[in-house]
């Protein structure tokens, strides 16, 4: 047995330490929890893959020996990490993120059937291997019309479809029947509704629910960043270290048929009747914002939630610095939500 001097500390795979301006965070993407920790502990954990606990203490001139022991002991007790005398058996995880898909998901605003050729857009997205689709029906369409519009998705490579439907006065049962005929539908929201609440199917075993809300989904509906919407997986966190997770490999077509990074963004990349989605998706101009991840954006780079935040805000440049246009309520310098 080796002596305790050679003891190393490892975080379990699902636990990522993140430094913030005021406060650090450990994101536990397996248990879907986050722990606030001092930034100094983040520094200790960042050194842990290359140095024994004793060596790390030395690097801090033995000023924090007691604190380091207490914190690491507590993390082990909480099941966040473990001590090992065999550091070579537990190598660090490779943090690169890769995807085979040129376009991961698309948002289509649909206001009237004539503004652009939805079926053609869906066929183009399928050829790109698009995995997810969100259709936002801004005005009431009948369930039958929606079903007809969705016809090209049936034998496509699409994996999931989310529908936001302006209340058409029909019963939820019609939507359940629509979903039965198209198993890719995973989410059904009826917006601009007089009622609010969840409706479950009368059929046993049907996992889908229809969400009714009085909220209106309009043109260029911006998303609001709230901590309760943070999502996390190893894939999301590693992607967020390299890409803007709100925008990367995502395509939006607004109600008039113009292609944008997100429906609320100012810059358009042509009308779907005139340009091919594939050409836009492969253009450097369209991909520019995919690469502007939170580590490259002022304020966000100091935020401990930066690898969890799906903000798809437009980004502006001033004097070589990038800023989000829709800023959130979190102040990382005071560590409070305002």
């Amino acid at each position: 047995m080796r002596s305790d001097l050679q003891l190393h500390f490892r975080l379990y795979n699902a636990c990522f330490p993140v430094k913030g301006a005021e406060m650090g965070l450990i994101c536990d993407v397996q248990r879907k929890e986050a722990f606030h920790i001092p930034n100094l502990l983040v520094e200790v954990l960042e050194k842990a893959y290359d140095h024994s606990v004793e060596s790390i203490k030395g690097q801090f001139h033995h000023q924090y020996d007691e604190g380091i022991d207490a914190y690491l002991g507590e993390l082990a007790k909480l099941g966040i990490g473990f001590f090992t005398s065999q550091p070579e058996a537990f190598p660090a995880m490779d943090l690169t993120w890769e995807s085979p898909l040129e376009v991961y998901s698309a948002i289509l605003e649909i206001e009237s059937a004539g503004n652009y050729d939805v079926a053609d857009v869906l066929r183009q997205l399928d050829r790109l291997g698009c995995a997810g689709l969100q259709l936002r029906f801004l005005r009431p369409f009948s369930t039958r019309e929606i079903g007809d519009l969705l016809a090209p998705t049936k034998n496509s490579r699409l994996k999931f479809i989310e529908l936001y439907i302006a209340d058409n006065g029909e019963a939820a049962e019609n939507l359940f029947r629509l979903a039965e005929g198209n198993r890719r539908i995973v989410s059904l929201v009826v917006h601009s509704s007089k009622m609010a609440g969840l409706v479950a199917s009368e059929k046993p075993g049907e996992p889908l629910q229809v969400v009714f809300t009085d909220q209106v989904v309009g043109r260029g509906q911006p998303d609001v960043v709230r901590p309760e919407d943070f999502v996390a997986s190893i894939s999301i966190i590693t992607e967020a270290m390299q890409f803007n997770i709100g925008l990367n490999r995502k395509i939006s077509v607004d109600a008039d048929g113009f292609i944008r990074n997100y429906v609320s963004h100012e810059t358009g990349f042509g009308h779907v009747s005139g340009v091919k989605i594939q050409d836009v998706a492969r253009s450097a101009g369209f991909q520019e914002k995919w690469l502007l991840h939170n580590d490259r954006i002022e304020k966000c780079r100091d935020c401990q939630y930066r690898y969890l935040c799906l903000s798809n805000s437009d980004i502006v440049e001033e004097d070589g610095k990038y800023y989000k246009k829709d800023t959130c309520r979190f102040d990382p310098y005071a560590n409070i939500w305002r």
Partner: peptide, 12 residues
């Protein structure tokens, strides 16, 4: 509720 913890590992 208390899922098994995982870590990258290497055999010798």
């Amino acid at each position: 509720k208390n899922p098994n913890r995982l870590a990258n590992f290497r055999l010798d």
